[in-house]
Design a protein around this nucleic acid. Structure first.
Length: 931
DNA sequence: ACGCTCACG
DNA sequence: GACGTACGTGAGCGTA
């Protein structure tokens, strides 16, 4: 078989580094499912090698081949010129571990793999090219690197693997304007910014080629430089002769290296199927493994643990409800499970009886593995007939057994090698968790959209489908009806449910296929992977934990509020001179400003008098009635929103209140709490604060609250680089007092509460994008005076002004602003005219600060479950800068130590804050005590 | 369905 | 020069 390299032989030399970098940048940062090892570049590299091998036929096919790599970063060129390639970025962190794997991949394909310390791959390629050419063979250099063009000629050609275009003498001429033998001369003059080769200043490839063609070669040109007519060009060449000659030595490839191998050793060999398949299996490259195994005619070994996520281009398969399948028996379901395993991922959607996950019963499941092909598995649809007023509680026909279905699906849902894709997966994972099924790993199209499009629009499925798939989903309203006559999904006939439910999975899969690669393009992969995706199981668990709420406490408070309100109402009516609905702002406004003729009646845009708290407070200094109304309103609020409504949210089974957090609701990255909102439980007023006494710890347990101290001001100090603020935090000073001292020239030991209060308002105002008007209204001082404060503040902390200006400018230039962790918040209104511009500006100033704080606590939350796994503790609630836990009394101190450590260091290692984060802790039998 | 008011960070 | 403004949320109520 073996033949001496010579005439009739054809050597292919592949530029390995170029392959790697192209693979790295072309693909999203894939990771090996089993252990998270980054393997995107390896995957792309393997695919490129495979494609190369498959295409290696015909007249240009190789008889000998080698992949050549760079080894180390220091070469003999650095000894000549220490700035050589000095402007190269450091290798990305996630690429570094992939380098040895690309060598392994090459060897697995049984292709020669060569690298030599101190030399660039290009030198090895040069030497081999010359050897092969001198032996009378052909050479093809698989690379598009122009530095290699000097080697072309005499049977040596290049092949641009991207364009699949061969480059010969003529191609080199096109690129450099000279033949291959003069390429280094042109490069020596033109320099190269990529490799940091200096060349001659002001001379590019065009001019260089012109000069070389005129004078023959570089040496003649430099010797005869004085003959050049253009004075500037002449002077440049004379002045920079040494630099140009150095440049030539830098670009000149070494074609006479001593190589520890010969051409014959590069002869093409068939890969050993066992070695190759073992390598691909180890990398968990399911798809390419299968393809290569098929090609080799052997059976693909089963990848035990996981499969990589493969990215299909979303082809334009039309939506077709007719094609959706209703799965009603085990055989059909097994077929779907087989398809899912062949794919490695599946879009999942659940249909239930309620939007409240804690109460919802599973009604059916939809699956989709490829666009246009989806199924619905109805499980507990009722067989109600239209003429039966109360419906028929018997199960409808044509449904497989609930247990049978789950027994079959559960291994897949829990299989770490199968990605379960959903739109708002927190909902579906909770539904499955209720049945004892832990769905993982997951991907979430809603959160992908949130990471990419935050601030542009919301992220509901209907909108995403409309906007990104140009498809209007089947509406749910006609199926369920509205208002009192609405039915639950289990009452929807199976025939109607199939197209609706299956379509949701179909849409989700298509969105996923579109979004997955786009995450990388938009530059939010890290945001999605560290701040969104891992939060889903954490929040799901917190919500399922719930917090114990004591109904009796609430009920007693409710009664007390009722009595006080009744008495206040009587007083108010008496002062008003007649009876009216105190809860009606419209009636109240008419009483106050028309009938009682109090001053300050201002009508809003709807024509109604404004009766907000600030207006009533102003009136209260002159008259008694507005103050009474304020008291009544406070009680009314506490009663209706808290003591009454909260009781309705106590879950009958758990005796606890289970809120739901929206991860993609707030534009800044904050969470939002709904049903009920547990992020706005009263605390500022004494009466309101007592509501927190109803939030209690279980028997033998305590509630622990940990909250970040002044996190937004600390972040502001860091982002805007305010040394005085940083120092104050470092010294543990009272930050508002310090601000007051700086602004009003009051020594710290003479600080009065009132001056401090004003400084505090200014500090907050800064975070919100301060305006004279806003501060004036907040502090109830004249606008001019407020503006004076602001001017003084900016004078004292000029960095703040600079931060604000820069942030607004950034928003105008880019259409978004960013947090320290890379979360993008889009600001579509920033260039608007009119009052909208003011809102957008202040929003842009506030978003990086509020958003960074939100990112910080998200990071803490993601790390928390593992950190406290060994403690008898549960994380229950998040209130923006506060986390609330329930823990066995004896372990409370340990919990505080551990959780505080996680919270205070949450920004590490991604962001090194100049200001340390501080966390205050409290504990008690109820939330009022703990805070 | 919408605006007002008010609870929180 | 006037305009209208603090940032981010959710819920309950009255009014249309």
């Amino acid at each position: 078989m073996s033949q001496q390299f010579g005439k009739g032989c054809h050597l292919h030399l592949i530029d390995g580094s170029a392959f790697i970098f192209r693979a790295y940048h072309a693909l999203p940062p894939l990771t090996r499912k089993s252990d998270g090892l980054p393997i995107g570049a390896v995957s792309g590299f393997v695919n490129m090698l495979q494609r190369y091998i498959e295409g290696n036929t015909g007249p240009d096919a190789a008889t000998h081949v080698a992949v050549i790599f760079d080894k180390g970063s220091h070469t003999f060129r650095n000894d000549m010129y220490d700035q050589y390639k000095a402007n190269r970025d450091a290798m990305p962190e996630d690429l570094r571990p992939q380098m040895p794997l690309t060598r392994e991949a090459t060897r697995a394909f049984n292709i020669a793999c060569e690298e030599i310390e101190g030399f660039e791959a290009d030198d090895i390629i040069a030497t081999l090219s010359h050897q092969a050419r001198d032996a009378g063979g052909r050479v093809t250099i698989v690379s598009s690197d122009k530095d290699l063009m000097q080697l072309v000629g005499g049977g040596v050609e290049m092949l641009d693997p991207m364009k699949n275009k061969r480059i010969d003498d003529e191609g080199v001429h096109e690129k450099f304007g000279v033949g291959p033998n003069r390429v280094v001369d042109v490069q020596a003059l033109a320099g190269d910014s990529v490799d940091n080769v200096p060349g001659a200043p002001g001379i590019g490839i065009k001019t260089a080629a012109l000069l070389i063609n005129e004078y023959g070669d570089l040496e003649s040109l430099l010797d005869r430089a004085s003959e050049i007519k253009q004075p500037k060009r002449r002077q440049t060449l004379i002045d920079h002769r040494a630099q140009i000659e150095l440049s030539k030595r830098l670009v000149q490839l070494d074609c006479e290296m001593e190589l520890p191998f010969d051409l014959d050793s590069l002869e093409i060999k068939d890969p050993d199927s066992e070695t190759l398949l073992a390598f691909l299996g180890e990398m968990e490259f399911r798809t390419v493994l299968k393809r290569i195994a098929d090609r080799m005619g052997v059976e693909a070994p089963v990848i035990a643990d996981a499969a990589p996520v493969e990215i299909d281009t979303p082809d334009a398969v039309p939506f077709d409800a007719e094609k959706y399948e209703c799965v009603s028996d085990i055989t059909a379901l097994q077929t779907w499970i087989d398809r899912i395993y062949a794919r490695g991922y599946v879009a999942v959607d659940t249909e239930t009886t309620s939007l409240n996950e804690m109460r919802a019963q599973l009604v059916g499941i939809s699956l989709c593995v490829t666009p246009g092909e989806a199924c619905y598995i109805p499980l507990t649809h009722k067989g109600g007939k239209a003429d039966d007023l109360f419906g028929n509680d018997d199960l409808a026909d044509g449904q497989m057994g609930f247990e049978d279905c789950l027994n079959l699906l559960t291994p897949m849902l829990q299989d770490p090698s199968i990605v379960k894709i959903g739109q708002n997966m927190k909902y579906d994972t909770k539904i499955f968790a209720n049945l004892g099924i832990t769905v993982a790993p997951i991907d979430d199209t809603m959160l992908m959209s949130y990471a990419m499009h935050g601030g542009m629009h919301n992220h509901g499925m209907d909108l995403l489908s409309e906007k990104y798939l140009s498809h209007t989903p089947i509406p749910i309203k006609p199926l369920l009806g509205t208002g009192k006559s609405a039915i639950t999904f289990d009452r929807v006939p199976v025939a109607d449910a199939v197209p609706y439910a299956a379509e949701d999975a179909d849409i989700t899969l298509r969105l996923w296929q579109m979004f997955k690669p786009k995450l990388h393009t938009v530059g939010v992969t890290t945001v999605y992977e560290t701040l969104e995706r891992p939060l889903v199981p954490v929040l799901a668990q917190m919500e399922r934990n719930g917090i114990k709420v004591d109904r009796d406490t609430l009920s007693r408070m409710s009664n007390a509020f009722s009595q006080k309100m009744a008495s206040l109402e009587a007083d108010i009516h008496e002062k008003a001179g007649r009876s009216f609905n105190v809860g009606s702002p419209k009636q109240l406004g008419e009483i106050l400003f028309d009938e009682m003729s109090l001053p300050g009646g201002k009508k809003g845009k709807t024509g109604a008098y404004s009766t907000g708290a600030d207006i009533l407070e102003d009136l209260a200094t002159e008259h008694e009635m507005p103050g009474l109304v304020l008291d009544w309103r406070q009680l009314s609020k506490l009663k209706s929103t808290y003591t009454d409504a909260l009781q309705d949210h106590i879950n009958a089974d758990t005796g606890r209140v289970h809120t739901s957090y929206s991860i993609a609701g707030a534009n800044t990255g904050r969470l939002a709490s709904t049903d009920p909102n547990l992020q706005n439980i009263p605390i500022r007023s004494e009466e309101g604060r007592r509501i927190r006494e109803a939030f209690v710890a279980g028997e033998g347990k305590v509630l622990v609250s940990l909250d970040y101290s002044q996190i937004e001001l600390r972040i502001l100090a860091h982002i805007a680089g305010i040394d005085a603020l940083k120092q104050a935090f470092k010294d543990g000073q009272d930050i508002h007092a310090m601000t007051a001292s700086e602004m009003f020239d009051v020594p710290m030991d003479e600080m009065t509460p009132d001056i401090r209060r004003q400084a505090k308002a200014i500090n907050f105002g800064v975070i919100y994008g301060i305006s004279g008007f806003g501060l004036a209204r907040n502090l109830r001082i004249p606008r001019g005076e407020a503006q004076g404060f602001i001017d003084r503040y900016f004078e004292r902390f000029p960095g703040i002004r600079a931060y604000m200006d820069e942030t607004v400018q950034f928003a105008k230039d880019h259409g978004y602003v960013q947090t320290l962790f890379g979360r993008k918040i889009h600001t579509p209104e920033i260039n608007a005219k009119g009052p909208g511009a003011g809102f957008a500006k202040r929003g842009a100033i506030n978003a990086p600060i509020q958003g960074t704080a939100a990112d910080v606590i998200r990071r803490a939350m993601v790390r928390m479950p593992e950190a406290i796994a060994d403690l008898p503790a549960k994380m229950l609630l998040q209130v923006h800068d506060e986390l609330i836990f329930e823990v066995d009394e004896a372990a409370a101190d340990d919990l505080i130590t551990i959780a505080r450590d996680i919270m205070e260091n949450a920004s590490d290692p991604a962001v090194k804050l100049d200001v340390k984060l501080a966390v205050d802790a409290g504990r008690g039998k109820n939330w009022a005590e703990a805070h």
